[in-house]
Write a protein that binds this DNA or RNA. Structure first.
Lengths: 139, 139
DNA sequence: TATTGTTATACTCTATAACTATA
DNA sequence: TATAGTTATAGAGTATAACAATA
């Protein structure tokens, strides 16, 4: 059974940790929204514009603008879909992959330091919680 | 020992859950940034403009704009500081407090629904992880 | 007719620089 | 001279509405 304060505690801890992590910005040339798109392209491969918009839960015009910025910076590439000429395939470039790699390692360094000091039991609990949180986020 | 992807997974899950929780607002007329300011005023009492800007880690002009929107909506009130006439004290109104209360209960209701479907083991792990995340955020 | 991507338009959030009033 | 708040200006992210090209 869920106790009343449990949801509040999880909500506050989530917001506070997200905020704390956000203060560890590494690369000023790429914004958070742009980096999130690069990360999605890096992890899941090429997307159409609408697939990217749906994944990030933003409108197609909004995603189009972000993708335009990334294209101008040479971090993504558009290419026509040979089967359906309405579609545009969007994929990350070598430069884009490089940005992801460097940024992730910088962003996660702070977190990794703290994870390394946890007990084995805490590690297991945190890994399990991470899966649950990701599942919640998808619902 | 911390495996390479663990920090990334925790970071992503935290960002995604925070983002998901943020979609639950009581009122679409209040944006995320505005609601965060209302929450700070509700929890910590009146602030000067620069104190609010510092707490939210944004520039004074940026905070000024957000505060203007909240004032026009009747959710906060400005009043002159009697001791130092350069200062403006910013406090939440009854309407503002109402928005905070309704939004918080809505967010926790959504979270509680999902918590209630977890196994006992998942509950324990999540509670333990919540404590760890809060501790990380304070460091 | 429906779908995909895009453009037009408008609003918020963000920043830096410069200005006003006060200490 | 220094500080608190504000205004001016500009760039990015967000949305809805409307449009062209294609299925």
């Amino acid at each position: 059974m869920t106790t009343p304060g449990q949801a509040s505690q999880l909500r506050l801890a989530t917001f506070r940790l997200a905020r704390r992590l956000r203060t560890h910005k590494s690369d000023d040339s790429v914004t958070d929204a742009q980096f999130t798109v690069l990360g999605a392209l890096s992890r899941f491969g090429p997307h159409t514009l609408s697939a990217l918009a749906e994944r990030e839960r933003v409108s197609a015009p909004s995603m189009n603008r972000t993708v335009n910025c990334l294209e101008e910076a040479g971090l993504i590439m558009r290419s026509e879909d040979s089967a359906d000429r309405r579609r545009t395939n969007i994929e990350i470039t070598a430069s884009g992959t490089d940005v992801v790699t460097r940024t992730v390692s910088k962003r996660d360094a702070w977190l990794t330091e703290r994870l390394n000091e946890l007990s084995h039991e805490d590690h297991v609990a945190l890994a399990r919680a991470t899966e649950i949180m990701a599942r919640f986020a998808d619902q």
